[in-house]
Design a protein around this nucleic acid. Structure first.
Length: 596
RNA sequence: GGAUUGGUAGUUCAGCUGGUUAGAACGCCGCCCUGUCACGGCGGAGGUCGCGGGUUCGAGUCCCGUCCAGUCCGCCA
């Protein structure tokens, strides 16, 4: 070993010891006859001390050290005369008597400190330097803890971690696949898994009745702050269980993680149906840290010659507690907010329930105070509150109101990152009608597609609806939502061959297509498939939530940017003619669509 | 595919309705400084104002295009 101790462990009790430390030079302070150097490693920072009076040659050497030099320093631990209470090693310093520069370093493009001066782009390009910063390293340490505690919990519950292949087969459902050309099978492609879905179901057929894996998944879709093209799931599946068993088992996992990693006991999780989530929050992943539920006002506002409300399919309100003193400027800001194209509302109506008990609205021309007080009643508004109302086509209005609700939650300080509100959303619809948007593969246009995936079991009482009203069929599917973030989701699977065939039928697969795409799974199910179900958690999102951050990138050692590029290694990149030739691939200059 | 914000020194940014020599802070280099820990003091170097075109007597500033980065919608669970 080149060192006897780390830079984070020496204390007053170690005084007089001769130690050898290795690390990077964080910074130096040359006071003339006296020079201090902060030496940093993963574990902390320890001050090296050089004195012109005691050892002029060594002091001269200490002065020569530049930022990020890698050095080995041998010396004696002494008590500082001036202690630094802000760091754990602040009561001691090392009087250096041997100093080896293991490696010089050029000046880094940004300062490697907690308060770095580096912008995101630069820090991504030099990610290996950014990772030297304590704040970034702490995020990866948190990720490590969560992974360890996940394994501890699932192991105690007799789950078995099994690896599944990464080079698999492309399927038409769900997200776009990343594909990998096969050299040995020319003209054919592997796909990278969007999740190990089919494999974990096959493991159930094999009798591994409790499976999990912390595993990379790949989806070739556009990215966001909380979406990466490759991301990590805690993927789980259980046999001989019902929905309730899964909910309890994984509520247990989340409880365990909060307790062991954050030291928080969380209350029993709330549960809400998808239908209620949409009605009361306009969102299938409501942030339940605060109430501010939707109140539908249709019955109270119609027939007063206010055209906007009269013609609206839905008139919906939220009550912002204590916001009646919002200024005209603030209300205009909110109006601008909802009118942004991403939100899509055409306007915002408000009613102030002033502190003096009077009610004033932006539509006083059409509604008198008696009518406004009915609104206030419906919203359970009290004096001092502000009622915000949107109207229009139901789906769009709910979506816009959901955004407004979150915005108001933020403005009113109701979204504290240290408060955690966990929720199960249940009874998702089984199917979704796909209009055939421009971006989807043409083959999927104008038919029903699975909201979760094609193996999700419908609720037994809804099976009959598959023939008459597929959109109304509810699934035995569930999402776990924490603070408005969907952290996990899963379902009870279909294990009955006939029901699976019916499902494929509803999804518009011919028997041949179903056989071709999923034959291996359907065949396996003929050999005795146990009733089973599972769940997958977005591990990166869980990390960012526990770390109180909005972006998952800070919790991934080497993330990609929003164009799917790794700015450090500069991938993706072109490959050589030779490689293309070997794969029998030709890059076309133009890219006409398959349908053209 | 779309909306939107930004791109000026190594870095983070300022730079007004277009105006003559483009600034600050941090960092870097040099000198001074014996208890600093955001050390302090003095001095210095450092710029293709993302790129291309246009308007103008004159463009960092206005217009068009383009590239890069961020956020969001679509998309994705």
């Amino acid at each position: 070993m080149l060192r006897s101790h780390t830079c984070g462990e020496l204390r007053l009790s170690d005084v007089t010891k001769t130690v050898t430390l290795c690390g990077w030079v964080q910074t130096g302070r040359d006071l003339g006859g006296l020079t201090f150097v902060d030496l940093r490693d993963r574990y902390g920072v320890t001050q090296l001390s050089f004195n012109m009076d005691t050892d002029a040659a060594m002091c001269e050497k200490g002065r020569q050290l530049g930022r990020e030099f890698v050095v080995q320093a041998k010396g004696i631990v002494v008590e500082r005369s001036n202690k630094n209470k802000t760091i754990p090693t602040g009561e001691i310093e090392i009087v250096v008597n041997e100093l080896v520069i293991l490696n010089k370093a050029i000046t880094p493009p940004f300062t490697i400190e907690d308060q770095t001066n580096g912008g995101d782009e630069l820090r991504m390009k030099y990610r290996y330097l950014d990772l030297r910063r304590q704040s970034v390293r702490k995020n990866l340490e948190l990720r490590h803890r969560l992974a360890i505690e996940t394994r501890n919990y699932l192991d105690l519950q007799h789950f078995l971690e099994v690896e599944t292949p990464v080079l698999i087969k492309s399927t038409p459902e769900g997200a776009r696949d990343f594909v990998v050309p096969s050299r040995m099978n020319q003209g054919q492609f592997y796909a990278l898994p969007q999740s190990p879905q089919t494999f974990k179901q096959l493991l159930m057929v094999s009798g591994f009745d409790r499976y999990y894996q912390i595993v990379k998944c790949f989806r070739d879709e556009d990215l966001r702050a909380d979406r990466q093209p490759e991301f990590t799931q805690i993927d789980c599946e259980m046999s001989f269980v019902e929905q309730e068993d899964i909910l309890n088992t994984f509520e247990g996992l989340i409880n365990h993680l909060f307790k062991t990693v954050k030291g928080i006991e969380i209350p029993p999780m709330q549960r809400m149906t998808y239908a209620d989530a949409m009605t009361y929050y306009g969102n299938d992943k409501p942030d339940t840290r605060f109430e501010m539920r939707f109140v539908e006002l249709n019955a109270l506002v119609k027939g007063q010659n206010f055209k906007v409300f009269d013609e609206a399919e839905l008139v919906v309100a939220i009550c912002a507690k204590g916001a009646a003193d919002y200024t005209r400027k603030q209300l205009d800001e909110l109006t601008d907010f909802v009118k942004r194209p991403q939100i899509g509302a055409t306007g915002l109506v408000y009613a102030r329930y002033a502190a003096d008990g009077s009610l004033k609205s932006s539509v006083d021309k059409f509604y008198n105070e008696a009518e406004l007080s009915k609104w206030a009643n419906a919203c359970a508004a009290q004096s001092g509150d502000l009622i915000l109302i949107l109207a229009g086509q139901a789906d769009k209005t709910r979506k816009a109101m959901s955004e407004l609700r979150l915005e108001m939650g933020t403005r009113l300080g109701l979204r504290n990152k240290n408060v955690f509100s966990c929720l199960w959303v249940l009874d998702f619809p089984l199917l979704e009608w796909n209009e055939g948007d421009t971006n989807l593969l043409a083959s999927l246009a104008g038919r029903w597609i699975a909201k979760h995936h094609p193996f999700t079991a419908p609720k037994p009482e809804d099976i009959a609806l598959l023939d008459t009203n597929p959109g109304a069929v509810r699934a035995n599917a569930y999402d776990m939502v924490i603070n408005g973030v969907e952290v996990g989701g899963g379902s009870i699977r279909i294990y009955n061959k006939n029901l699976q065939a019916k499902m494929f039928n509803t999804l518009g697969f011919s028997n041949e297509e179903a056989q071709k795409q999923f034959g291996f799974l359907m065949n396996a199910f003929e050999f005795g498939a146990p009733p089973h179900g599972g769940i997958a958690f977005g591990f990166d999102r869980l990390c960012s939530l526990f770390g109180g951050a909005d972006s998952i990138r800070d919790f991934i050692a080497f993330p990609k940017n929003n164009a799917g590029r790794d700015m450090m290694i500069e991938s993706p990149s072109e490959i050589s003619e030779e490689q293309l030739h070997e794969l029998k691939l030709v890059i076309r200059a133009d890219t006409p669509k398959a349908s053209e």
